[in-house]
Every structure is written in C-alpha cells, then in structure tokens.
Simulated scan of single mutants.
Amino acid sequence: MIKFIHTGDWHVGKTIRGKHRGGEYRAILDELYDFIVAENIELLLVAGDIYDTPTPSAEAESIIYSFFHRVSSLGVKSIVVAGNHDSSLRFEAISQIMALANVTMVGKYDFENPQNCVCEYTSKDGEDKLSIGLVPFIFERMFIRAQDIIDEKREETTMRYSRGMTYVLNEISKHFAADTTQIMVGHLLMHGARPGGGERRLYLGDNYAVHPVAIPKNVSYFALAHVHMYQQIEGPCPTYYCGSPLQMDFGEAEHEKGFLCGEIADGKVSTPRFIPFKSGVRLQSISGTIAELEDLLAEDNHNWDNFHLKITIKTDASTLGLSHKIKQQFPNAVDIRREFIGEDTKQLIAQDSPTWLPDLYRDFHNNHYERAADPEIIEEFLQLYEECSEEE
C-alpha cells in the first residue's frame, strides 16, 4: 500500500498587500512534515505553483529546499510539476540536483519526448507499482497563435486549446508501464472548476480550460492544482483540486485550507481525505464607520491579532487622518480603504483651495511609512500640485 499526499498552489514568497508571510509558510510546511511523519506517508504529489513568481527570493527558495531536504531524509518520494507562476527553465535547471533529494521535477512538457513526463514508482513494501504522468502548466501559445484569436470565434480557440491538452495527456499515457496503477499530477484548469478567488484571472477564462473527457481512461487518479479551492471534478476518474495551503487573497477568506491524503493498493485509489491546516493567518474583511469599528475592537469575542484585515472605513470625504488612526487600532490591517458616504465627493475634490491635499498626503505618508512626513516634503508636494494646476 502507498499512502500519498496531494498538495499544490503553495505560492511561497507571496505577500498579502505587501505584508511578509514567510513565517506562515514555514509553519504550514512544518505541519505538513509532521503529518508525513505521523501517517507514514511515502509519496508526495505537488501539483505546481510552489513559488509565487518565476524569480523567487532567496528566502522563498530556502523555505522550499529546506522542506524537501527534510522530507527526503524520511525516504519520501516527491513529485513536483511547474505551475504558471513557476519558472519552467528554473525547474529544469535544478531537476538533477533535486533528484539527489529524491524529488522528481518537471518544468515543461517535451513534445518530442513525452516519456520524460512519466515517472515510475514502486512502494516500499514492493507490493504496488505506479506510473505517474507529470503535466506542467502549458501556456496557450503552444496551441493558439495570435492570428487564431483574431480569425476564429471564441469557441474555436477554446476547442483548439482543449484539443491540444487532450493530445498531451494521451501522449503521456502511452508511456505508462503495463501492470501499474496509473495516475497523473498536473497544473491546469479543468472545465467545471469553481475559482477560489485568489487566482490569476488571465488563466481562468474558458479559453484555457480542458474538458474532463480529455483524461485518459487508464488513469486512476488526477491530482490537480491551479484553482485555490478544494473540490472534486466530475470525470472518468477521481479528479481533485487540493486547494492552496493559505488564504491567498480576500476572495478566499471563507475557504478552509488544507491538503489531500489518500491510499493506493491493489491497483485502486481510495477516496482522498481532506486534511485542514491549523497553521496560517486567516483573512477577514470588516467595514463600518469609525464608531462601528471601535465597537468591533471592543468586543471580547474577537481577537483581531489573529487575522490579516481588510478594513473599509465608511466616512465623509472631508474626514482626514483616518487610515493612520485605524492602523494604530488594528495593527494587522493590511488593506485600508474608504467608502465615502454623505456629501458629494466630486464637489469636495473640485474645491478651489488645495489645502486639503497636504492633509491627504500626510495621511498617506503616516499609513505607508508609519512615520510623519517632514514639513519640507509637504511643502514640495504642494508646490508640485500648484505647478501642475497652472499647466492645466
């Protein structure tokens, strides 16, 4: 029997409105490591977007490499494919080094040698053998030209991408070994998936979706990432998105985050269990007038220090200095914005006197730099405003 974990969409290095989250990522991966130890996991499937950017920071790389090094010391086999946020070239460059830590990484699909996207694995007890198809994210430009978008209807370009991905999946499956349980790990959008709210919208349109009928019939499990919300996709085999380990943006504030754990035995894959993460700081949006926000702050049943907060202040447009005040009361606020109520804001902004502008700049400076602006800077700001007004 093989016990496996299916995870992905880590986005290590991602901040929340500029706030550092390195400690949260370390805690999440520590929790994942502890689960691997406690449950005697022997196969780790990571379905892409381990980084948030193709050029991750040294800290982000340290977090990733340290985790896989620790996991390899347990004798765990790790399978990792590149997502659209990862660098396929970086993956390919470090794949041989990562192999020393028992990690198989695939950064890009090799159209001439699809067998390079297949990995064989035998369980530690020797009873079960797997053929694992690795499907990194494939950008639409591999199947759709700019001229196609101009000349064809949307439905035609949609089908062009889906047909291309169907070809890729079938080519990979042709290289599965006989008498093995066959699974796939991929980073793609499957038709029918519900977005989680924090994904990059460009690659969630219908043009880039793959229909579940594209999944080869001999596949027993498809481990997916790209959509940040845990869900099952109806298809010819058990097909799941594991979801992201952290709430990546406020559109995901209501979603529970975790990973999937399943078992493979006698050629069959069990229904995976969703294991929620206990680590990570949750996101929450609150709004109200100053008085209402102060009432929320006074409530005993809320510990606002345990959240990254998005705060909308309902206020009159002429009220100044609010962001700095709210930041002092809610130190974990990462996004503070105003919702103007009452007076006509256009009329206020169109007033002849620019004296309100320095106050707004002071408010911005206090909130952004967490210190008061020098009087000389305020004076220069006002001079620039006057010069621009004269040019108009």
Rank of each mutant, 00 (worst) to 15 (best):
G288M: 03
I286H: 01
H302Y: 13
I313D: 05
D305P: 01
F330D: 01
K325Q: 05
P276G: 09
F274V: 09
G262M: 06
I290S: 08
K327L: 15
L309Q: 00
D295F: 12
K325Y: 11
K278D: 11
N306C: 06
K325H: 07
T289G: 07
G321F: 03
N332T: 13
N306A: 13
I311Y: 04
S270F: 04
S285E: 15
D266E: 12
I286Y: 01
D266F: 04
I275H: 02
F307R: 00
S318R: 09
S318E: 13
L283P: 00
I313T: 05
K327S: 14
S285P: 05
H324W: 10
E299H: 09
N332E: 09
L297D: 07
S285Y: 14
T319N: 05
I286V: 10
F277K: 05
L320G: 02
Q329S: 13
D305W: 04
I290R: 11
S270D: 03
L309E: 00
F259N: 02
A265M: 06
D266V: 02
E292D: 10
I264K: 00
F307P: 00
G280A: 04
K314S: 14
T315F: 10
K325A: 09
D316I: 07
F274M: 06
L320K: 06
I311D: 03
V281L: 10
G321Y: 06
R273V: 13
H324N: 12
K314L: 15
A291H: 12
T319L: 08
P276I: 07
K268R: 11
T289W: 14
N306L: 10
T319G: 00
K310L: 09
K310N: 12
E292K: 12
H302F: 14
L260N: 03
G267T: 08
A298K: 15
T315D: 07
C261F: 14
I286C: 02
P276W: 05
H308I: 10
S279V: 13
F330C: 03
N306K: 10
A298Y: 03
A265F: 09
V281M: 12
G280R: 03
D305Q: 15
P331D: 04
S279E: 15
K314E: 15
K327C: 10
V269S: 06
D266P: 00
A298G: 06
S285L: 11
S323M: 12
G267A: 09
G267K: 02
E294F: 12
L296T: 03
D300I: 01
N332V: 01
S279H: 07
Q328W: 05
P272H: 05
N332Q: 10
Q328Y: 07
H302V: 08
I313K: 02
N301F: 08
A298D: 11
G280I: 12
G262T: 09
G280Y: 08
H324S: 14
T289N: 08
F277I: 11
W304K: 03
P331F: 07
H302R: 07
T319C: 08
I290W: 12
R273D: 15
F277E: 06
I311S: 03
Q284K: 15
K310C: 07
F277H: 09
A291R: 11
I326K: 00
